[in-house]
């Protein structure tokens, strides 16, 4: 066996899968060739370094499922909106493809921006698409569901309110939508859920509970304390979100929570709790 052939057998030898004849030949080669021996040692070091990565913890983003399903919804949405094109249209698209893309995007933006005035987001019921069908929210089994009955199209965006980064985008189609937003992180997160100019600001509990009986912070901090301590989703509807408030949990009932000495939390029919001034 020459060195090149022996090199090809590094992995099989190290895994113990060589037949006895080849194994003996490989070991003879190693014995006789110090350079090959060194190469084999280095091979083992590299493999060991690679395999150490198996233990490296990889935590999926809490909204991964939502991002996947949103991408699928968008793909369905795009494929249904794509017009069938004739020869002239193909030529026109080739010429004005970029403009066409902008126009489609503008249409979608226009649809989600169109809204009826006077609709309260505190009802967790957001209008979109300028049509009758509305997006609604419900808290069930530890998940926040975004629901749309169908009949119209639009987009619901999920943002991180701290940096306004869009963490998820959920287009809905005529097939309807019943999507769970699940927070897989241990602690609660606050998210803005937007369609058009309407915004639902909500604290979604994480997988672990951490009870802080009393504390001081912004409205988001109060909502997170409720979410972390009692495992409930809390919608925020406050005039001055940045103002510092003092909270005190009272037993296991979120409604009994005192904020600046007052009870300002109520339970909504959709299962969310509302923190309102």
């Amino acid at each position: 066996m020459n060195s090149n052939k022996a090199r090809d057998l590094f992995s099989e030898y190290s895994e113990g899968t060589l037949n006895p004849g080849l194994k003996a030949g490989f070991e003879r080669c190693l014995e006789q060739d110090p350079a090959l021996r060194e190469e084999y040692r280095q091979y083992l070091v590299v493999v060991q370094a690679l395999e150490a990565r198996r233990d490296e913890p990889v935590e999926a983003p809490f909204d991964l499922h939502d991002r996947i399903m949103a991408r699928i919804d968008k793909s369905i949405f795009d494929s249904r909106r794509a017009p069938s094109v004739g020869l002239f249209e193909r030529w026109r698209l080739a010429m004005f493809g970029g403009l066409g893309t902008v126009a489609v995007a503008a249409t979608v933006i226009a649809l989600v921006n169109a809204q009826r005035p006077g609709v309260e987001t505190s009802e967790a019921n957001l209008l979109s698409g300028g049509r009758e069908a509305a997006v609604s929210f419900a808290w069930r089994e530890g998940q926040l569901f975004v629901v749309h009955p169908g009949e119209s199209v639009g987009v619901v965006e999920v943002l991180n309110p701290e940096d306004k980064r869009v963490v998820g985008s959920i287009p809905y189609t005529s097939e309807g939508l019943n999507r769970a937003l699940e927070n897989k992180a241990p602690r609660s997160v606050v998210r803005e859920i937007k369609t058009g100019k309407q915004t639902l600001l909500v604290a979604i509990p994480g997988t672990e509970r951490e009870r802080r009986e009393t504390g001081e912070g912004t409205a988001a901090d109060v909502a997170r304390a409720l979410a972390d301590g009692l495992g409930v989703a809390v919608q925020l509807d406050v005039k001055d979100p940045g103002a510092v408030r003092t909270w005190r949990l009272k037993g296991d009932d979120p409604v009994a929570t005192e904020v600046d000495g007052k009870t300002v939390v109520s339970r909504l029919p959709n299962g969310l709790y509302l923190l309102k001034d």
Binding site: P61, L64, R67, I68, A70, R71, I72
Partner: peptide, 10 residues
């Protein structure tokens, strides 16, 4: 990674 996974599931 999340993008790749989302595209893959599409």
């Amino acid at each position: 990674a999340a993008d790749v996974v989302a595209d893959a599931f599409v």
